[in-house]
């Protein structure tokens, strides 16, 4: 071996390190950076920018019948809220919505529990979702009106249809993604049947279930508003969709926009308050999602 190939032998050395005092080991971030890390602030800025864009566009357009300004819409909304009319409409819509959503969630959970425990359940779930998931809920409305009449029954029927399939698909996909060691751990404890599903599979698949719940909620909301637009007041008591439809007919465009704004606002609140808090105390806390 040539001497050039062997590394040089260097002397060893030993150092005693004094405590590190030259600079603080950790320091605070500057204020703007800390502010920018607040999600609500960033999102609020997006909303403000959108409102300004709307206001600017409406003033440039200068036609209240086609596009009322953000200010006019807001005052129409405040009027509606003050008179209590829009609140009552919202209450009617939300009552129907929550009923349909709850029934859909229960059915989806039953269907997926069946699917994880039996081969027949799996076939049933995959066939039914393949058949019905592509069907727009609103297309079933004429049929629902025929079966359940002009009223809440038909609305709940189409809502269940809107929620059930996407939620069942998501939940089942989540169940299938549960890692094997975790499954075996659950069975090792002697858990079986519903206890196994409820205490192991559901928490482990919660990220997928939550995203299914979110999708189901959005589908339900849009289906409900669309259904109310189509057949309006059920037994004289119309919801938010009916409010929008009625005011469009009477060319109160600012009220139409106020109704739409409220639909958007409820969507934002449910997303950022209900689902975000649910995620914070569960899947984020448990480190299942970042």
């Amino acid at each position: 071996m040539s001497p050039a190939l062997s590394p040089p032998i260097r002397p060893e050395y030993d150092r005693v390190l004094p405590p590190f005092v030259e600079a603080p080991v950790a320091r605070a971030l500057p204020l703007p950076t800390r502010l920018w890390q607040q999600g609500w602030l960033r999102r609020g800025l997006i909303l403000v920018a959108l409102a300004l864009l709307w206001e600017g566009l409406a003033r440039w357009q200068d036609n209240d019948l086609l596009l009322p300004t953000f200010g006019a819409t807001l005052s129409a909304l405040v009027d509606g809220l003050a008179s209590g009319e829009i609140l009552e409409r919202t209450r009617i819509s939300l009552t129907v919505l929550v009923q349909g959503y709850a029934v859909g969630v229960v059915l989806a959970f039953g269907l997926t529990s069946l699917a994880v425990s039996t081969q027949f359940g799996r076939d049933l779930l995959s066939t039914l979702t393949a058949m019905f998931n592509p069907l727009p809920a609103i297309a079933l409305l004429p049929l629902a009106l025929l079966w359940f009449g002009l009223g809440q029954g038909s609305l709940i029927f189409v809502l269940v249809h809107a929620v059930l399939w996407p939620l069942a698909l998501n939940t089942y996909a989540g169940f299938q993604g549960v890692p094997d060691p975790l499954r075996m751990t659950g069975r090792n404890y002697g858990l079986e049947g519903l206890r196994y599903v409820g205490q192991i599979l559901v928490p482990a698949a919660l990220p997928a279930i939550l995203s299914g719940l979110k999708i189901g909620w959005a589908f339900a909301w849009r289906t409900l508003i669309a259904a109310e637009l189509v057949f309006g007041a059920s037994s004289g008591r119309g919801g938010l969709g009916w409010y929008i439809f009625q005011n469009r007919n009477e060319l109160y465009t600012d009220r139409v926009f106020a109704g739409l704004l409220l639909v958007i606002a409820i969507g934002l609140v449910v997303e950022t308050v209900v689902f975000a808090s649910l995620e914070r105390v569960t899947v984020r806390r448990w480190g299942q999602v970042r």
Binding site: P179, D180, P181, L182, M184, T185, N188, I200, P203, A204, L206, T282, W286, G287, Q288
Partner: peptide
């Protein structure tokens, strides 16, 4: 009566 300790770290329920 036969508890298993697996090799994988994801044997602990994360919740």
């Amino acid at each position: 009566d036969r508890i298993v300790v697996f090799q994988e770290f994801d044997q602990l329920p994360p919740w």
